[in-house]
Simulated scan of single mutants.
Amino acid sequence: MEFTHVPPGPLSDKAQQYMVRMRDGVRLATDVYLPEGDGPFPVVLTRLPYDKNGEIIRVDVFAEALLERGYALVAQDTRGKFRSEG
């Protein structure tokens, strides 16, 4: 059986990406979507083992719905997946 590597999808232009360092030094790719205006904002946090910027999981579409309602979204790739270190 042969496996095909699928690279991460493109980062949304509506998000800011950060590499958040864990206690052991591994950095997790974290996309932050903020609504217009000054905060503070209520935040929805999600961690995914699937590509948050891929064709199947569309976090940017989910973020748009939350941003319209005044929520911020923080979406993070789990350890060792896509843009996160492992």
Results as ranks from 00 to 15, higher is better:
residue 29 A to P: 00
residue 42 P to N: 02
residue 26 V to I: 15
residue 58 R to V: 03
residue 48 L to E: 03
residue 81 K to L: 13
residue 61 V to H: 04
residue 73 L to I: 06
residue 61 V to Q: 09
residue 22 M to W: 03
residue 51 D to Y: 02
residue 8 P to M: 01
residue 28 L to D: 03
residue 10 P to E: 13
residue 85 E to R: 09
residue 20 V to A: 11
residue 9 G to P: 10
residue 78 T to V: 15
residue 38 D to K: 14
residue 78 T to A: 13
residue 29 A to F: 02
residue 67 L to F: 01
residue 57 I to V: 15
residue 86 G to E: 13
residue 50 Y to D: 09
residue 70 G to S: 14
residue 49 P to E: 04
residue 40 P to S: 06
residue 11 L to D: 08
residue 22 M to H: 01
residue 66 L to G: 07
residue 56 I to W: 07
residue 20 V to T: 13
residue 59 V to G: 12
residue 24 D to I: 11
residue 77 D to I: 14
residue 13 D to P: 08
residue 24 D to C: 12
residue 48 L to M: 10
residue 76 Q to C: 08
residue 49 P to Q: 10
residue 65 A to P: 06
residue 2 E to K: 13
residue 28 L to K: 00
residue 81 K to Q: 14
residue 36 E to S: 09
residue 33 Y to I: 02
residue 2 E to P: 12
residue 78 T to K: 11
residue 41 F to N: 02
residue 50 Y to N: 13
residue 17 Q to M: 14
residue 78 T to Y: 06
residue 63 A to C: 11
residue 33 Y to M: 03
residue 65 A to K: 15
residue 14 K to T: 10
residue 77 D to F: 07
residue 11 L to I: 14
residue 15 A to T: 04
residue 67 L to C: 07
residue 17 Q to H: 03
residue 18 Y to I: 01
residue 23 R to N: 13
residue 33 Y to E: 01
residue 19 M to P: 08
residue 17 Q to S: 13
residue 34 L to Q: 02
residue 12 S to A: 08
residue 76 Q to Y: 04
residue 54 G to H: 01
residue 77 D to W: 05
residue 35 P to V: 03
residue 27 R to Y: 06
residue 65 A to C: 09
residue 3 F to W: 11
residue 10 P to Y: 05
residue 40 P to C: 12
residue 38 D to Q: 15
residue 5 H to L: 14
residue 35 P to L: 04
residue 3 F to Q: 09
residue 32 V to M: 03
residue 56 I to F: 08
residue 85 E to K: 06
residue 15 A to L: 04
residue 72 A to E: 05
residue 66 L to E: 02
residue 42 P to K: 02
residue 47 R to H: 09
residue 56 I to P: 01
residue 22 M to F: 02
residue 74 V to D: 00
residue 82 F to Q: 08
residue 6 V to E: 07
residue 13 D to V: 10
residue 18 Y to H: 14
residue 68 E to S: 14
residue 8 P to I: 05
residue 74 V to K: 04
residue 60 D to S: 06
residue 39 G to I: 11
residue 56 I to V: 15
residue 54 G to T: 10
residue 28 L to I: 08
residue 22 M to N: 11
residue 79 R to P: 11
residue 78 T to Q: 13
residue 31 D to M: 04
residue 53 N to P: 04
residue 65 A to I: 05
residue 61 V to E: 14
residue 78 T to P: 02
residue 58 R to A: 01
residue 5 H to M: 12
residue 30 T to Q: 07
residue 6 V to Q: 13
residue 56 I to R: 12
residue 48 L to I: 07
residue 86 G to R: 12
residue 15 A to N: 01
residue 40 P to L: 10
residue 55 E to R: 14
residue 77 D to V: 05
residue 6 V to W: 06
residue 52 K to R: 13
residue 15 A to Y: 01
residue 32 V to G: 00
residue 6 V to T: 15
residue 26 V to G: 00
residue 57 I to N: 12
residue 10 P to H: 09
residue 35 P to T: 06
residue 41 F to T: 07
